[in-house]
Measured scan of single mutants.
Amino acid sequence: MQRVNMIMAESPGLITICLLGYLLSAECTVFLDHENANKILNRPKRYNSGKLEEFVQGNLERECMEEKCSFEEAREVFENTERTTEFWKQYVDGDQCESNPCLNGGSCKDDINSYECWCPFGFEGKNCELDVTCNIKNGRCEQFCKNSADNKVVCSCTEGYRLAENQKSCEPAVPFPCGRVSVSQTSKLTRAETVFPDVDYVNSTEAETILDNITQSTQSFNDFTRVVGGEDAKPGQFPWQVVLNGKVDAFCGGSIVNEKWIVTAAHCVETGVKITVVAGEHNIEETEHTEQKRNVIRIIPHHNYNAAINKYNHDIALLELDEPLVLNSYVTPICIADKEYTNIFLKFGSGYVSGWGRVFHKGRSALVLQYLRVPLVDRATCLRSTKFTIYNNMFCAGFHEGGRDSCQGDSGGPHVTEVEGTSFLTGIISWGEECAMKGKYGIYTKVSRYVNWIKEKTKLT
Rank of each mutant, 00 (worst) to 15 (best):
G229F: 10
P333C: 01
T218Q: 09
Q96H: 15
Q408L: 15
E208M: 08
R364N: 14
C134M: 03
P101K: 12
V4K: 12
G106P: 03
T381A: 12
H34A: 11
V243D: 02
A192R: 04
G58V: 15
E281K: 12
K146T: 11
V374Q: 09
P177F: 00
W356P: 11
I299D: 02
E285M: 08
V227D: 13
N222W: 07
S99K: 14
P12Q: 08
V154D: 09
G230L: 11
K68I: 05
V368F: 15
G413S: 14
D315N: 11
L20E: 01
G432T: 10
R46P: 12
F31M: 14
L383Y: 12
E193T: 05
N258A: 04
E208Y: 13
C69K: 07
A37Q: 15
S350I: 09
S156V: 06
S220C: 15
L325Q: 00
E129K: 10
G439F: 03
N304F: 12
N151R: 06
Y91N: 14
Y312E: 03
C157A: 01
H415S: 01
N166M: 02
A436S: 07
C128N: 03
K362T: 09
G442S: 04
C268F: 00
F123E: 13
C145Q: 03
L130H: 09
K440L: 02
E53P: 12
G179T: 00
P44T: 15
L372A: 07
Q57K: 05
T276Q: 05
V447I: 15
V154T: 08
Q96G: 13
F221P: 12
K89W: 04
C117D: 02
P172Y: 06
A164D: 08
L321Y: 00
G105F: 10
D410M: 15
S448N: 05
C252A: 01
V183Q: 10
N135H: 14
I309K: 14
D33N: 07
E401A: 11
K234I: 09
N36P: 12
G254W: 00
P12N: 05
G246D: 08
S184F: 12
T29N: 10
Y352K: 01
A149V: 09
A250T: 09
G106H: 03
Q408R: 08
N393T: 14
H361L: 13
R191A: 13
Q219I: 07
F224A: 06
E340K: 03
V447A: 08
C134H: 02
E86C: 15
R62T: 14
E418Y: 13
R364Q: 09
Q237E: 04
T29Y: 06
E193M: 08
K362G: 12
E281Q: 12
L383M: 13
I262C: 02
G254R: 00
V77S: 13
Q370L: 02
I428W: 14
S169T: 10
T218R: 03
D200E: 10
Y22Q: 09
V153A: 06
I454N: 01
R384C: 07
I429N: 11
R379W: 13
S365R: 14
Q167A: 11
S329G: 11
S156R: 06
Y341H: 07
I336Y: 01
W453N: 00
F196L: 10
F345G: 01
P324D: 04
P301W: 07
Q90E: 06
T290C: 07
V227R: 13
C170Q: 01
V242L: 02
K387R: 05
T225H: 08
L163F: 01
V242R: 00
L460F: 12
H34T: 13
G254H: 01
W453T: 00
N36T: 06
G439S: 15
K137A: 07
R358H: 13
S365F: 03
G403P: 03
T458C: 11
L19Q: 01
G106V: 03
S148T: 12
M394N: 11
G106W: 02
S365H: 13
N452G: 15
T29K: 06
P414K: 01
T215N: 09
A265N: 02
L244M: 06
V451W: 02
P197N: 04
I136Y: 12
I300C: 03
L244Y: 03
E82P: 12
K137S: 08
E98R: 13
I210K: 05
I429T: 13
C117G: 02
G355T: 08
A279R: 00
G432M: 06
Y341G: 05
K362E: 13
S114H: 14
K440N: 14
A308T: 13
E76M: 15
H303P: 12
D212E: 08
K293T: 11
P197G: 08
T422K: 08
C178N: 00
K146L: 09
E53I: 06
I275S: 02
E433N: 13
D249G: 11
T16P: 03
F176P: 00
S184N: 13
E193I: 09
Q90R: 05
Q96R: 15
G13W: 03
E61W: 07
S182F: 05
D405C: 10
L211A: 04
I214G: 04
Y450M: 02
I334P: 00
E66R: 07
I316N: 00
Y91G: 15
F221I: 11
G409F: 14
M65L: 05
V419L: 12
I297E: 04
G254I: 00
I136Q: 13
F87T: 15
E82A: 12
K109E: 08
V278R: 08
F144Q: 02
P120F: 04
K234R: 09
V181H: 07
G398K: 12
S350G: 14
C178G: 00
N100P: 06
V174C: 04
T218M: 04
Y305M: 02
E165K: 11
R83Y: 09
H314I: 01
E79Y: 11
C108T: 01
R364E: 07
D93T: 15
N138R: 12
K274A: 05
F399C: 13
C435E: 04
Q216D: 10
V353N: 02
D95P: 15
Y201K: 08
N258M: 00
L367H: 13
H415F: 15
P414E: 06
F224H: 07
Q167Y: 08
V154N: 06
F121R: 06
M6S: 09
S365P: 04
C134I: 02
S25D: 03
I454D: 01
C102I: 01
N310W: 04
S107G: 09
D131K: 03
L318E: 00
C128T: 03
I262P: 01
R46S: 14
G13A: 06
E420V: 12
L319G: 02
L103E: 12
V202T: 09
L19G: 01
K347L: 10
R379N: 12
E281C: 10
L19N: 01
K39R: 07
D338V: 03
V153M: 11
Q216A: 09
T332L: 10
T186N: 06
N313R: 11
I429S: 14
Q219H: 09
E270F: 05
N38Y: 10
A308P: 07
V353T: 14
A266S: 03
V174N: 04
N328W: 00
R3H: 05
K89H: 07
T417S: 11
K311C: 04
G421H: 11
T194P: 04
Q2W: 11
T29C: 13
V263I: 12
L211F: 09
E61Q: 12
V447K: 00
L163A: 02
V296T: 03
K109N: 07
E259S: 06
S11T: 06
D315S: 02
W431N: 05
C128K: 04
A164E: 05
Q185C: 11
L460P: 14
K311R: 12
H267A: 04
P175K: 09
A250E: 10
C97E: 02
K68P: 05
F196V: 07
G357N: 03
N36R: 05
L425E: 00
E433H: 14
V227C: 11
I390Q: 14
C69I: 04
P375Q: 04
T417V: 13
N38C: 08
I17P: 01
T342P: 00
G432W: 05
E323V: 14
I284K: 07
E67Y: 08
E53Y: 03
H289M: 10
R191D: 11
T287I: 11
E288F: 06
F348H: 04
F121C: 05
L41I: 11
T218W: 10
R294D: 00
F251W: 06
N306H: 08
T264A: 07
Q143Y: 01
L20S: 01
Y91W: 04
T445Q: 04
